[in-house]
């Protein structure tokens, strides 16, 4: 059975959340998008996705959130082996240096996007991260190729990679 790879977007301002989702809609044909406006809700969604046997490939997370903040959420995900492999991107208007360093060190942050972002920048980062995820996690890359970095996918297939379940 085909496993879904989800993109999770966490942002508490609805119009900003809407803009992020709108900008990355092109990936949705292969990677369903889920949205949450608190860390708590994000964790619920993560639980549901994992319970369904699906995966989370990428999380785009705001820093300033009610209750638990974004950096702490990412750290919690890093410390949970089921979510450690998720690609983590912080998208924020104001995380101080201290918080960002913490995210890099403790949550293995892949990327930091400052608000306001540009659509191309966001799309490129998402494509790159998802490509990494697909190659690293040894999932059959062909079905995702149309929205990912095709050269890198082709390269990884040519080199045999670790792709086992083709």
């Amino acid at each position: 059975m085909k496993k879904n790879i989800y993109i999770l977007v966490v942002e508490d301002e609805p119009d900003v959340l809407d803009s992020i989702v709108r900008d990355i809609e092109e990936f949705e044909s292969r990677f369903p998008i889920e949205m949450a406006d608190t860390a708590e809700e994000a964790k619920e969604i993560i639980r549901d996705i994992l319970d369904e046997g699906d995966q989370i490939g990428l999380i785009l997370c705001d820093h300033v959130l009610p209750e638990q903040n974004g950096v702490d959420l990412l750290i919690e995900m890093q410390n949970d082996e089921r979510t450690r492999s998720v690609k983590k991107v912080l998208i924020t208007g104001q995380a101080g240096l201290e918080e960002t360093v913490k995210a890099v060190n403790e949550a293995d942050l892949e990327h930091y996007i400052a608000k306001p972002w540009k659509k191309k920048e966001l799309v490129d980062i998402v494509r790159n991260q998802l490509t990494d995820f697909v190659i690293e996690q040894s999932v059959n890359p062909l079905q995702y190729m149309s929205v990912l970095d095709q050269e890198r996918i082709a390269e990884s297939i040519r080199h045999g990679g670790d792709i086992t379940d083709v």
Partner: peptide
Amino acid sequence: TGFPDTKTVR
């Protein structure tokens, strides 16, 4: 129309 919260949308 404004934005409903994420839970409602889901």
